[in-house]
């Protein structure tokens, strides 16, 4: 991985975020519009109200679309799954497609 890939965190990738929002809505058959998912709002619990089975489906969809494997032994999971923005940032740093 290049140095570029690991230092992108500062600027959110708005195109990727919009793309990921559409993937979440489609993969989980949500009744909200992709545009209505606030990038910083929590995905689980209070915010979008996803549960751990949703997280599993989301992980499967993310792996298929971006080639990023989300594993349970990643200690940063709570941060990665915190919001659309944090998930997109993680994907940006690790995507293979």
């Amino acid at each position: 991985m290049s140095m570029m890939g690991t230092t992108v965190a500062a600027e959110p990738d708005l195109v990727l975020e919009a793309d990921l929002a559409r993937l979440i809505v489609a993969a989980l058959s949500l009744e909200v519009a992709a545009d209505d998912i606030a990038p910083e709002a929590p995905l689980f619990g209070a915010g979008l109200g996803l549960d751990s089975i949703d997280a599993l489906e989301l992980a499967l969809a993310v792996s298929k679309a971006y080639g990023v494997q989300l594993r349970s032994d990643d200690e940063r999971n709570h941060r990665i799954f915190a919001s659309l923005r944090s998930l997109a940032a993680h994907i940006a740093g690790h995507r293979t497609r």
Partner: peptide
């Protein structure tokens, strides 16, 4: 334990 976003990832693994 249930109740963590990655609970089901652990199950899958």
């Amino acid at each position: 334990p249930l109740g963590s976003p990655d609970s089901m990832l652990r199950v899958r693994e």
